[in-house]
Design a binder for these strands. Structure first.
Length: 467
RNA sequence: GUGGGUGUAGUUCAGUAGGUUAGAACGUUGGAUUGUGGUUCCAAAGGUCGCCGGUUCGAAUCCGGUCAUCCACCCCA
């Protein structure tokens, strides 16, 4: 019995029409990356499970797709785990964890940053620092799919590793502006700094609650000021600290005004002041790059706190609500866990699939990137087909993209094929034409036809296409 | 992991006081036009109404379960 075809939830097929559009995005991003001197690398779709585990927090670990070991994996389960399983009691989380490590040793990559860190450590002796790399590959997350969220999606990462200069941060912001400028997507860039957040937590005497504080503040737009304060209280912050936070939550004005206010608030925190210095420096560079008008200093931005140590960057479409379409930041010691300490890196990741959704909803995809077949040669039968093969070769050598219709079927069918595939020119070479060493060229857009000697076919088509 | 919406032709969807043979549009195929597409006209093919069970003389329709999918939360690109 035929089974119904289907693909796993959160995954998608891409049609030729969609691929044209996807490649437009990838090509645009890749071109920009290259003009700033970044080099491409790729890493495997799967990594050792232990490479990935523990890098994204507990939540992240749950979202990693594990790959079942091949062969008789069940025989390798140790006896104590096996007996606990056979007891049949409700499987506690801890047991699942013990079991996972025994039946799975590989997993699909969850992002491109951790594999990159692993790559750097393994290839450190053949890498010249600072190393500027880009990487455009799919990643997988066992998330529940929803709008703008897929289980398989492409990230386009650019990172500089082995340089502490804040010029890198600014350059990434410049790249962001350039990419979205070329794609004609209007954006706002949110910029924050982990050290400023740490300074704030320190000043109000809650240094260990930095994550709770920022996560709560991050929800300001969603749940409002009261909601934020309630959540802060629920996380165990004393009222006094919450009161101290209010001016910071209410921070307003231009970026430099915000910085000025922060300087007063954070003057007692060394870390905080360092964050402010970093932020000012990045903003100064971005002025020189003439991109500062797109950047908002935003203390409510609280992403990736598990490993970011300096700048935190997030980009949102100003037209479509779809979450962030690009994000990243500075991580001072990402390679440390793999045994290479003190290598600082900064990078951002473009979410190609969300960018696709934004371009589609705002109808900003260009008409056609012209990557289709330009000429179809009609099949009139075996003799004519053989005579057409050299014509096709000549045209392809001249740079045209040419198809010979493979089957000898009714012309109506062949013309429909040209039409359905938006092929602009059709060459008709039947017995009539061939006996005169000529072909008929039909312009599918205009509907008119012209005749050309076979020896002159390249010039003839060049003339037609250049009109 | 938590909560909600939706499952009918390849696609988008109609279809209730439960009642013969479940419809439309688009797409596909054939014909009008045996060497001419895109427009037009005609015709055809295409459905176990997600799946399993229940109520009923009778279920696409009501009920329960299940699966799938979408949306929201958590988190994230």
């Amino acid at each position: 019995m035929a089974q119904k075809p289907g693909i796993p939830k959160g995954t998608r097929d891409f049609t030729p029409a969609q691929m044209i559009r996807r490649n437009y995005i990838f090509d645009t991003i890749r071109k920009v990356f290259k003009t700033y001197g970044y080099q491409a690398i790729e890493t495997p779709a799967m990594e050792s499970l232990h490479t990935l585990l523990g890098k994204y927090g507990d939540e992240g670990d749950k979202l990693i797709f594990k790959i079942l070991n091949s062969g008789d994996f069940a025989s390798k389960i140790d006896s104590s785990t096996a007996s606990r399983l056979s007891e049949g009691s409700a499987v506690p989380f801890e047991l699942s964890r013990a079991l996972t490590s025994q039946i799975s040793e590989k997993a699909l990559r969850y992002d491109l940053t951790v594999p990159f860190a692993r790559y750097i450590v393994q290839h450190r002796h053949e890498t010249t620092f600072p190393f500027k790399r880009y990487q455009i590959q799919p990643v997988w997350r066992a998330d529940r799919p929803q709008k703008g969220r897929y289980r398989e999606f492409y990230q386009c990462d650019v990172d500089v590793i082995g340089s502490k200069s804040l010029l890198n941060e600014a350059e990434l912001l410049h790249i962001i502006c350039e990419v979205f400028g070329r794609l004609k997507i209007s954006i706002r860039i949110k910029l924050n700094n982990r050290k400023i957040l740490a300074g704030i937590a320190e000043i109000i005497g809650q240094a260990d609650k930095i994550v709770d504080i920022t996560v709560a503040i991050d929800k300001l737009d969603k749940i409002g000021l009261d909601g934020v304060n309630k959540e802060l209280a629920r996380k165990g912050l004393p009222q006094e600290s919450i009161d101290q936070l209010q001016p910071i939550i209410h921070l307003s004005g231009t970026n430099s005004e915000k910085l000025k206010q922060l300087k007063t608030v954070l003057s007692e925190s060394e870390t905080g002041m360092q964050g402010i210095a970093e932020m000012s420096s990045v903003l100064d560079f971005s002025k020189e790059m003439d991109i500062s008008e797109w950047i908002d200093l935003d203390l409510t931005l609280a992403r990736g706190l598990n490993y970011y140590t300096g700048a935190i960057i997030e980009v949102k479409s100003s037209d479509i609500a779809i979450g962030s379409i690009c994000g990243g930041g500075r991580y001072d010691d990402l390679t440390g866990i793999f045994g290479l300490p003190d290598v600082s890196g900064v990078g951002v990741s473009f979410g190609a699939d969300r960018i696709y959704d934004v371009l589609e909803q705002t109808e900003l995809f260009p008409e056609d990137s012209g990557s289709r077949t330009q000429i179809l040669i009609v099949n009139f039968g075996e003799d004519e087909l053989k005579a057409c093969i050299p014509i096709a070769i000549t045209l392809r050598d001249a740079g045209f993209s040419v198809e010979l219709y493979p089957d000898q079927v009714k012309m109506k069918k062949q013309m429909s094929y040209a039409n359905a595939n938006s092929i602009p020119y059709v060459i008709l070479a039947g017995q009539q034409e061939l006996s005169e060493n000529s072909v008929t060229v039909k312009d599918m857009t205009e509907g008119n036809q012209s005749s050309s000697l076979i020896t002159n076919i390249v010039d003839h088509l060049n003339n037609l296409m250049n009109d």
